[in-house]
């Protein structure tokens, strides 16, 4: 099986010097959800932003390649790259409110993509938007099309964004902490929806999260990052097993669980915590 996304030896550095992402390689196949896990400063969001071509100004890619269906995204002419975004590579953002334009109706935001990227007529685009909202299990889809974002609940907004992400049948979706802002019962529905949609459309998903619980429930493959480097990579069963890398196990031990008493919780060892703080500080510089 050939990979949809194939990142090789990616390096991201601060322009004034200092590594943020060091020699990271990973690949995501069609129909696969690949989890990118780590604490803040691990480099997971930087990698996702490098794929989407939206790195902050203080940061540059200083080495490696980002292979996407045979092309290297880093070498692509800006015009061709923009043509891919939205159409071949789509994003499900973290915050469902900022992901939508507050001043425009849902219908306008959904049909933009369909009309401009896929050249559909107004009527076609509206019919397809309606079908997409039904596919993400929104009841009264026709009414929702005519609403503004603030009139919808957080879960509904995230469903709309998922519908938009899948609207052009992209081969890769980058999901950046897509459920962090949601209530836990809504989170479960959204995770389920992402998996259903991804399976139905055979989409490759790069799933960025800090939550090992979410990883265990939605990912097939996992890359664990620490201070910009890969500490472990493999199938979900390996990562969740007791044979996982010491760093992964330390994170697991520091994750509280409602089914375990308080003394089962172990804060990460001091040296790991110092490294985490140093890495987080470097990232603060990247996002002033």
């Amino acid at each position: 099986m050939s990979a949809i996304l194939d990142i090789r030896d990616l390096r991201v550095t601060l322009r004034r010097g200092g590594h943020l992402v060091r020699d990271v390689s990973l690949s995501v196949n069609a129909g696969e959800v690949h989890g990118l896990v780590g604490e803040s400063g691990a480099g997971k969001t930087m990698i996702a932003r490098a794929v989407l071509g939206i790195l902050p100004d203080a940061v540059k890619v200083s080495g490696g390649k980002i292979g996407f269906r045979g092309d290297d995204l880093l070498q692509l002419a800006p015009k061709r790259f923009r043509a891919l975004l939205g159409r071949e590579i789509a994003l499900i953002p973290q915050d469902p409110l900022t992901g939508l334009n507050p001043a425009r109706r849902i219908s306008a935001q959904m049909t933009d993509m369909l009309r401009h990227h896929l050249g559909q007529s107004r009527q076609e685009a509206r019919a397809n938007a309606l079908r997409l909202l039904q596919e993400v299990q929104i009841r009264d889809a026709g009414q929702v099309l005519d609403r503004y974002p603030h009139e919808l609940s957080g879960g509904m907004r995230q469903r709309v964004l998922i519908a938009i992400a899948f609207s052009a049948e992209p081969s890769l979706i980058v999901a950046d902490e897509p459920t962090t802002a949601l209530d836990v019962t809504v989170q479960k529905q959204i995770l389920r929806l992402i998996r259903q949609m991804q399976e139905r459309h055979g989409t490759a998903v790069l799933f960025v999260t800090h939550d090992l619980g979410v990883v265990a429930k939605v990912c097939h493959q996992v890359t664990v990052l620490h201070t910009g480097q890969v500490v472990e990579q493999g199938g979900i069963a390996e990562i969740m097993s007791t044979g996982a890398a010491p760093f992964t196990r330390a994170l697991m031990g520091a994750t509280p669980r409602y089914d375990q008493p308080a003394d089962a919780l172990h804060p990460v060892p001091a040296h790991i915590h110092r490294e985490l703080l140093a890495a987080a500080r470097r990232f603060d510089e990247a996002n002033p």
Binding site: V184, L212, A216, K217, M240, M252, R257, Y258
Partner: peptide, 16 residues
């Protein structure tokens, strides 16, 4: 319902 919705870091096929 709340408890069922919490994703624990364990593999549980069919949980979703």
């Amino acid at each position: 319902q709340l408890i069922d919705a919490v994703p624990l870091p364990v593999i549980e096929p069919g949980w979703l």
